[in-house]
Amino acid sequence: MNIFRFAGDMTHLISILVLLLKIYATKSCSGISLKTQELYAIVFVARYLDLFTDFISVYNTVMKLVFIGCSLAIVWCMRLHRVVRRTYNKDVDTFRHYFLVLGCFLLALFVHEKFTFQEVLWAFSIYLEAVAILPQLVLLQRSGNVDNLTVQYVFFLGAYRAFYILNWIYRYLTEPHFGRWIASVAGLVQTALYADFFYYYFISWKNNAKLQLPA
């Protein structure tokens, strides 16, 4: 465990807690893409299959349970909570995310570390996580100005993967045979997707204006 990875896990946790706070405090999920939340639930379930087979550390197990639990709770809230579900605006959340699932699964069938059930699903979850934010970014663009908590959610989510890239560089330099190419390349793609969002977030923060994304 290095400081970059720990910082990444903490910002990832913060992003999920910010989202839960927003939904719980405002009893509203306007501006949040249910499709992105569903993709994240699939990412965590597909990636943490080893939860009960490989014990790595208490920290690892607890964090996996928290991530799976929170992502399923958010999807449950947005789909079934009698108050929150009415604030979900499905006609702006129109990204066809099933194509993302299919594309990532096909890619995982061809590009993986080992051709085993767990490894293919792990690669699938890595690819899917890289693109899972797309429905949310499309929704932000469509709805123009959005509330701060949603923007902070995306911001922390981007920061988490940026920390992980520093973690992979650090581990590559310090551990002899550390090769995590699939996660590193997908992580770079993921962080690049956020880069333009960060740019507009920084510009709006500098001008102390509301976030304006190009249509």
Partner: peptide, 10 residues
């Protein structure tokens, strides 16, 4: 935690 093991990251 087992270091360098394949899937020790979240």
């Amino acid at each position: 935690e087992r270091n360098g093991s394949s899937k020790d990251e979240l």
